[in-house]
C-alpha cells in the first residue's frame, strides 16, 4: 500500500482540496522582479490565460507565483504545483513534474511524490480537461528547462 497519508485516499478530501485551491489559490500574485522568469500561457483551444513566474537561484526554486483567468482545474492544479515545487531543487522538481504528467497520461506514477496533486488523478479519463490540468505545469517545466543549462 501507499505511504501516502490516508487522508489523501479520501475522494471527499481531494474534492475539497481542488475547491479550496480554486477559490483561494496559493501564490496567486504576480511580482515585478527581474530575477523572476515568466511564462504567459494562453491556451489556443480554450479560454485559459495565465501567467506563471518563478525565481530560481542556486539550483533551487525559491518562489512561484501565478495569476490569470482559468477554470477550476487549471487554477487549482497550478496553485498546488506552486505549493509543491517551491523550495525544491531543479532535479527534484523535474521528477515531480514528470510523475505528474505520467499521472495525466493515465500511466503508472509515484503517488507519494505528488502529494495533494493526486487530486487530479482522474483527469486523464476526460481527455478534454487534460490540457486544463497541464497548463501551469507546462509553464514551470519550460522555465526549469530554460534555466537548467545555466545553473
Amino acid at each position: 500500500m501507499s505511504k501516502q497519508s490516508d487522508y489523501l485516499n479520501d475522494a471527499t478530501i481531494l474534492r475539497e482540496l481542488i475547491m479550496d485551491h480554486y477559490q483561494y489559490p496559493h501564490n496567486h500574485k504576480l511580482v515585478k522582479d527581474d530575477r523572476y522568469l515568466s511564462r504567459h500561457m494562453a491556451s489556443e483551444s480554450c479560454i485559459d490565460d495565465i501567467t506563471v513566474q518563478t525565481y530560481i537561484k542556486d539550483g533551487i526554486i525559491k518562489d512561484i507565483q501565478f495569476d490569470g483567468v482559468a477554470c477550476t482545474i487549471s487554477t487549482a492544479s497550478t496553485s498546488m504545483m506552486s505549493d509543491l515545487l517551491i523550495g525544491k531543487t531543479l532535479a527534484e522538481a523535474k521528477v515531480i513534474v514528470e510523475e505528474y504528467f505520467k499521472m495525466l497520461d493515465g500511466k503508472e506514477y509515484d503517488e507519494d511524490i505528488l502529494e495533494e496533486a493526486i487530486a487530479f488523478k482522474n483527469v486523464y479519463k476526460q481527455a478534454n480537461r487534460i490540457k486544463c490540468a497541464s497548463i501551469g505545469w507546462n509553464a514551470i517545466q519550460e522555465m526549469i528547462e530554460e534555466v537548467e543549462p545555466k545553473e
Binding site: 481531494l14 474534492r15 475547491m19 480554486y22 477550476t72 482545474i73 482522474n122 483527469v123 476526460q126
Partner: peptide, 9 residues
C-alpha cells in the same frame, strides 16, 4: 461549483 469538480471523482 461542487458538481463540476465531482465529475473527477
Amino acid at each position: 461549483k461542487e458538481s463540476v469538480i465531482d465529475i473527477f471523482f
